[in-house]
Amino acid sequence: METIKFLESGKLILEKWIERSQTTEENRLDIWISTANLKPAVQSLVEIRWGYLITITGLDIPPVRDQDNNELQPGQLEALYHFANDADIITIRVKVPYSKPQIDSICEIIPSATIYEREVIELFGFDLLNTPNTEKLILPDSWPEGVYPLRKSFTNLQDLVTSNKEQSND
């Protein structure tokens, strides 16, 4: 009962930005929006105090290749912003390509998001524009640039380091 009320109100606010939406469970609403609209969408949710940001989940969608190793679909990263209000969860989803993984930072609106943003930057290689702090949070300071452990392509650092060395030797 209340569930529907909250979800509906959330949907109503975000209406104008929704590109695609989906309800997988009764208390969940997933909406896909474009990167440009992320900030206003979050802003509007925060303004009416619709719940709080649980976390930002990163997802890696590796490139789809055919037999000849041609890219049919380029690799993509997806960021999921989970907002919860009581039992209800609205997930705002943003997709960006590997080549330009840029998303606006939402730290101006929700200061506590910085810790989640740093996490996705480090582990997935998102590029969050205007995020206040990009220092390493989890990984060591000397972690190689451009290596993102939670991408599917990452298997083992040892292999990676050796392969890099070989490459540089060539």
């Binding site: 997988t24 469970e25 997933d30 649980i54 989940t57 989970h82 997930t91």
Partner: peptide, 16 residues
């Protein structure tokens, strides 16, 4: 895809 939330002794635990 599923979201699972549980109240741990320290607060809300979130699984995706």
């Amino acid at each position: 895809e599923v979201i699972s939330r549980v109240e741990a002794p320290r607060g809300e635990l979130f699984y995706f």
